[in-house]
Design a protein around this nucleic acid. Structure first.
Lengths: 177, 177
DNA sequence: AAAACTAGCTTGCAAATTGCAAGCGATCTT
DNA sequence: AAGATCGCTTGCAATTTGCAAGCTAGTTTT
């Protein structure tokens, strides 16, 4: 009960531990796609624009499962498929993801519309809460349509000002902040 | 003016761009040490516990300077020394760092006192504002004493409940959130 | 002012990780 | 029964890392 400290980690600093888990080019992109783009299958990631190699993808999915951020279960309807989902530990990365997004959008040359970014920065809580809601209710519609890979839209036509509503903090949880 | 999109990046997604800048094991640890431990010199990082190799350190410091997160200027008093500091773009990573810290502390086995973490989670704004204040005023005292490498404490003896005060959000900026 | 020392790198090299292409077994589809 | 598809695995070359050693400009000691 009192022998090993911080098990396998190089240092007990939480920042270091977090980076040991997903401090590389790909892990958080996978989490992003699960969280924000409604991806669920291996194929989704392979076709996902940034061009991850399949061996790396398989490796990262395995590691993310091992540390409890992602689950993978066989699809009932097509037994070849594995359906990947975020665990609660995984969806808890939403604030990290959001801050990463805001920083990148504010300081680098990205494809994100500045007004939307500004609104998101103003309504951080609402954005995170919306991400959580989608995860809870397994809503597969992508959270940020301007991200590009808009596959699997639920009802085509309802979307379009989705990100604007979101950024404005329409959801009830946005009362204070 | 209308030729190349998103200059050198693989995809215009802000998350991807951010990860291209500091998505590796070491970059954010360097930023952390500059931000919360008051590190300023090459030597500080070398002795910093996690054991970064000097070639990697030199490389990361160079890259962080190239993308405007860090500056390096010769020390007036000892011309061998280079003093590294965060730019404003660099200190803007404080929210990312905080969320990374909170996630790690809440979900992994780390050395962070749970009560302090809980308080920090409750007072995110105050913590970030305190980090900014220290950066603005060039206050070299480490922000998180329990992080370990407590070098260069300003007045030894005043410390000890520093992190507790911080977490409780003592600073004026913590009024709402 | 010579010798010894220090800070911040650079270099060389072995080991690990990555990217790319091809292959493979299990599961649909026709 | 013959493809096509899905989620991987394997092989291999290229890049990146970790470790030790060296090197240069500036500093302290003698």
């Amino acid at each position: 009960m009192a022998g090993k400290r911080f098990s396998k980690h190089r240092s007990g600093c939480p920042v270091n531990v977090s980076l040991e888990v997903f401090g590389d080019r790909w892990s958080l992109l996978i989490v992003r796609d699960l969280m924000v783009r409604g991806f669920t299958t291996f194929q989704d990631f392979v076709e996902s624009g940034e061009g991850i190699a399949t061996n790396i993808l398989a490796d990262r999915l395995r590691k993310l499962q091992q540390c409890g951020i992602v689950t993978g279960e066989k699809d009932e309807k097509d037994r070849r498929r594995v359906i990947y989902r975020l665990t609660e530990k995984g969806i808890d990365l939403a604030p990290v993801m959001l801050e990463l997004l805001l920083w990148g959008a504010q300081h680098e040359n990205t494809g994100a519309p500045p007004e939307v970014i500004a609104e998101m920065a103003r309504n951080r809580r609402a954005v995170v809460e919306e991400a959580r809601r989608r995860w809870r209710e397994r809503d597969p519609a992508p959270l940020l349509p301007w991200l590009g890979g808009t596959k699997r839209r639920s009802r085509p036509g309802v979307r379009g000002s989705e990100e604007a509503r979101l950024a404005r903090g329409v959801r009830r949880s946005a009362s204070k902040e």
